[in-house]
């Protein structure tokens, strides 16, 4: 149909597409053992929830009675339950962690490039790097590719030393920097055992890439507009945030998403059933400079 047309599709167009998906939708729905009208109404209001005009709590309030009536025991949570759930949940909010499988890493630097593209870091600033080391002599030697984002330590030395509390540990495990407070003393860079922090010297790719300054990454969910001389992230310290702005909209960090060998895993370390929790308990797991007691949240599989 209109897929190839230059006109952008409007939400109504999608509805029309769906309308023609089956010859007569009402007939199909009527065949179901459950109430069709309730389903349609819920679908309509679910769209409202998604576009923000209706609160999820209200949605539950409206439909929970009918749902209990319709599904009986199979319906698990009513509105009261969801409230309690959300309260109970706040105690076990996700604590993000990353697992990097060194056997899968081929050292292609895709993570470095995608990180640069996602966070639009200036020259000299790279939140993620891949360190290549060759150990041993021919023929007995090995090459290790060590992707190195910020370790998001649980005992972060950088947070200890920051004179202004501009860098701090969030509840979700991410070590963040408040660039509006940072004075740019670079003490945290000297204190970081992993060299994960960079200073924004105010340089730009503008000369080789027109328009570089026009778009900045909404780091930590803060839109800062164009990159300008003396505007905020400049002359302050910057670091990997596990792509916090992507996490906020439910996406994985850019490096995890683009890894061609699927060497990176990302998830909730608080959830014992998550992939990362299980992998972190593997006997292959190790952390960088564990002896320092920094408790990194990035786990490597050797």
């Amino acid at each position: 149909m209109a897929f190839n047309s230059n006109n952008h599709l409007q939400p109504e167009d999608y509805s029309k597409l769906a309308d023609h998906f089956v010859p007569d939708s009402n007939k199909v729905l009527a065949a179901s053992p459950y109430d069709s009208q309730l389903g349609k109404n819920m679908a309509r209001d679910a769209r409202k929830v998604i576009n923000g005009s209706l609160k999820i709590e209200d949605f539950h309030k409206v439909y929970s009675a009918s749902l209990i009536k319709e599904f009986g025991d199979q319906y698990a949570s009513g509105p009261m339950d969801t409230n309690q759930n959300s309260k109970a949940k706040s105690g076990t909010d996700p604590k993000w962690g990353m697992v990097i499988d060194l056997k899968k890493c081929i050292g292609c630097d895709t993570c470095t490039v995608s990180c640069k593209a996602e966070n639009r870091t200036p020259p000299g600033v790279s939140y993620n790097v891949v360190l290549e080391t060759i150990k041993g002599d021919f023929p007995n030697f090995s090459i290790t590719n060590l992707p190195k984002p910020c370790m998001q330590c649980d005992n972060p030395p950088c947070v200890q030393v920051c004179p202004t509390r501009a860098t701090y540990k969030m509840e979700n495990g991410i070590v963040t920097i408040d660039n509006d407070r940072c004075i740019g003393c670079r003490y945290c860079m000297v204190a970081c055992p992993y060299g994960s922090r960079s200073y924004d010297f105010g340089t730009s790719y503008e000369q080789e890439m027109a328009g570089f300054n026009d778009v900045t990454s909404p780091e930590y969910g803060v839109e800062r507009g164009k990159r300008k001389k003396g505007a905020i992230p400049e002359e302050t310290v910057r670091k990997c945030s596990f792509c916090y702005h992507r996490l906020q909209r439910g996406e994985e960090p850019a490096c995890v998403e683009t890894c061609i060998g699927d060497a990176r895993y990302f998830g909730d370390m608080n959830d014992p059933n998550s992939v990362v929790s299980k992998l972190a308990a593997s006997p292959r797991a190790f952390r960088l400079k564990e002896e320092l007691g920094t408790k990194p949240r990035v786990v490597y599989l050797r």
Binding site: T164, R165, R181, I183, G184, Y187, T236
Partner: peptide
């Protein structure tokens, strides 16, 4: 040596007690 002299008062206002520099 401080990158943002306009923020320098933050080091006096927001005192991080674990920071030797503070």
């Amino acid at each position: 040596d401080i990158g943002r002299p306009d923020h320098v008062m933050n080091s006096v206002i927001y005192w991080n007690v674990t920071s030797t520099m503070s």
